[in-house]
């Protein structure tokens, strides 16, 4: 099991928005929905380019190029032209609001 990595705090993430975090081998989008935080790989399974910049509405991020939508909680593709799931990453939130991410359990 890989280490937990501290990435942000609940207060620093705007509700209903997302931020991008870059790591050595992977880029991750972290979404806040109320008191919940979700993380997915910044990679559209349709064309292999980034999802960052897409609209985040009703728990889904929409690829800014071709409109594929992914559930940020499960990573499931919700609409064509993507059919494959995007990787998700475990998140934990400490009592003081610190958010941690685990990378290699996607």
């Amino acid at each position: 099991m890989s280490q937990w990595i501290e990435i942000s705090t609940l207060n620093a993430l705007a509700d209903g928005a997302y931020e991008r975090f870059e790591f050595d081998d992977v880029d991750v989008l972290v979404f806040r929905e109320g008191e919940h935080v979700y993380a997915i790989e910044d990679l559209c399974t349709h064309d292999g380019a980034e999802l960052c910049g897409g609209l985040y509405i009703d728990g889904e991020i929409e690829c800014p190029r071709h409109g594929a939508r992914f559930c940020v909680k499960t990573g499931q593709a919700r609409s064509a032209p993507a059919y494959g799931k995007v990787s998700t990453f475990p998140i934990r939130i400490h009592e003081d609001g610190v958010i941690e991410l685990q990378l290699d359990d996607a």
């Binding site: 910049g53 897409g54 609209l55 509405i57 929409e62 800014p64 190029r65 409109g67």
Partner: peptide, 9 residues
Amino acid sequence: AKEFMAARR
């Protein structure tokens, strides 16, 4: 792209 996706919606 962002403007376009909003336009679609």
